[in-house]
């Protein structure tokens, strides 16, 4: 987070030097993730954003958001049986089924107005880092230790035991200006990291975050001719 804050300050600090204008706003979104078996899930998200307009219709955009996407049905079951030398037996059963992902995200993108500087359409391309990724679904861990031993059973949410917790990917987005302070936005994102932790000794399930979204970009603040 420190690096991201420094980048944000750097961008804002450079505004007076290079920018034609600076704007900031808010975007609520409806998400359409591509989930297990290439079907379309549901979700929603929201972000605060800032844009620095440079010359020739170019710009830089930074946004911080949160989103929830659901409809996944990816699962793993690990069964491990061990006979120990003193004759005791340890059974381990771990079952996890991912249904929903929630995450924070931060985007850094380059923008370009389509065709010319007066075009109502702006296109953006950039990188996204998602952090604090948590999952909901079913998770059960049972460790049964036989012969005078203990039996432990726990049920809890999907956590860092089986999920990676962050993601890195690329996004493209388009903004169509509807009114002076309101644009229609559409975005596509592809994450490059499997959201399941890598499992030792076998190929576990894979879930890559792929999302489409549409939303409204409300400009709440703008300065011109800096």
């Amino acid at each position: 987070m420190k690096q991201l804050t420094a980048l944000l300050l750097l961008l804002l600090g450079s505004v007076p030097v290079v920018a034609q204008s600076f704007s900031a706003g808010l975007s609520p979104r409806l998400m359409a993730p591509i989930v297990t078996d290439a079907t379309i899930g549901q979700g929603w998200g929201a972000a605060v954003w800032s844009r620095i307009e440079l010359d020739d219709g170019k710009g830089l955009a930074l946004q911080l958001g949160w989103q929830e996407i659901r409809g996944y049905n990816s699962a793993v079951e690990i069964l491990d049986t061990r006979v120990l030398p003193e004759g005791s037996i340890s059974w381990l059963e771990e079952t996890a089924r991912l249904k929903r992902l929630q995450m924070w995200l931060i985007d850094l993108s380059f923008g370009q107005q389509a065709w010319n500087e007066n075009s109502p359409l702006t296109l953006e391309a950039g990188m996204r880092y998602s952090f604090g990724v948590t999952g909901t679904g079913n998770y059960q861990f049972r460790n049964i230790y036989s012969i005078g031993g203990a039996t432990t059973v726990s049920r809890r949410g999907l956590g860092e035991e089986v999920l990676r917790g962050h993601d890195l990917g690329i996004r493209i987005a388009g903004y169509y200006k509807l009114q002076e302070r309101l644009s229609l936005e559409a975005e596509a994102y592809q994450g490059f990291l499997n959201q399941w932790e890598s499992f030792e000794g076998f190929a576990g399930p894979t879930t890559y975050v792929t999302t489409f979204s549409i939303g409204l970009a409300l400009r709440l603040y703008q300065t011109k001719s800096l």
Binding site: N73, A75, V76, E77, D80, T81, R82, I172, A203, T207
Partner: peptide, 26 residues
């Protein structure tokens, strides 16, 4: 970026088994 995104999306939309089972004993 659009090209990379399209290729990555096509690659990540592969079908996964509904349940991956890993069984081991020692």
């Amino acid at each position: 970026t659009s090209l990379i995104l399209s290729l990555a999306m096509a690659w990540s939309c592969q079908q996964e088994p509904e349940l991956i089972v890993h069984e081991s004993s020692y």
